[in-house]
Amino acid sequence: MTGVAPANAPAVGTVRTPGVTTAESPLLEVTDISAFYGRVHALKPTSLHIGRGELVTVLGPNGAGKSTLLRAITRLTPASGRIAFEGRDVSGLPTHRLAELGVIMVQEGRGLFGQMSVRENLILGAYTRPGGDMDKQLGRVFELFPRLKERIDQISASLSGGEQQMLAIGRALMAEPKLLMLDEPSLGLAPRVASEILATLGELNRQGLGILLVEQKAPLALKLAKRVYVLSLGQIAAELPASEIRSHHDLARYYLH
């Protein structure tokens, strides 16, 4: 673990996912990943892991390097360091190969194909599963987000913010991911809609999907996650069980040092 917690912060705990044996490799293990934007060291050597079926949250203030961390893991941003997925070293693989393995990211801003319909976006989501049962997959997505079915032929740019986020997550699910990474899914959404979407993520996690959730809205994210990484100034300031963060004051210590 990189980064040192402030002296007045709660003790950094090393938490392993319940049910994950030491013999079983984690779903994702990132070791000393580091990224630059020009000369700016946006992500200092950072390590983290996600167990199989675990939901882990990365919290941090604006500019802490949260999005860079996800982009570095998926190789959308060039980065050094080691990445292992299901025990296999995937450090040299490009973004699309990671997606084929089941590492799917929902980007900040959703990354929808704005001029395509909901249906076209969803079908593209299943790009890495060409032989799959498309109708069955669509059915699963519509069970989670019935509103998408009502909007199926609508151009995605014309959807509301909440619907767009549903579509972004639904499209990612079409790929049948093993690890779903989300970059601030509640950004710009009304509190009720954000809660709905995060509750759906909780449901997906209960069904066994590994999730790495990057969020600024700590109270919502902490309800879902068992384990939290706090990112500050481009490095991990703490790794601790979500239950240890009971108030904003606990979190503020990491944000404000």
């Binding site: 490009p94 699309h96 799917i104 990354g111």
Partner: peptide, 24 residues
């Protein structure tokens, strides 16, 4: 075809296409 859909995804957003498994 699947190839055509991949091209459309690239035209829409290269990072999003790559994140969905398209070899941009």
């Amino acid at each position: 075809s699947r190839f055509g859909r991949a091209l459309a995804a690239i035209a829409g957003s290269e990072p999003a296409a790559a994140a969905l498994g398209v070899n941009v």
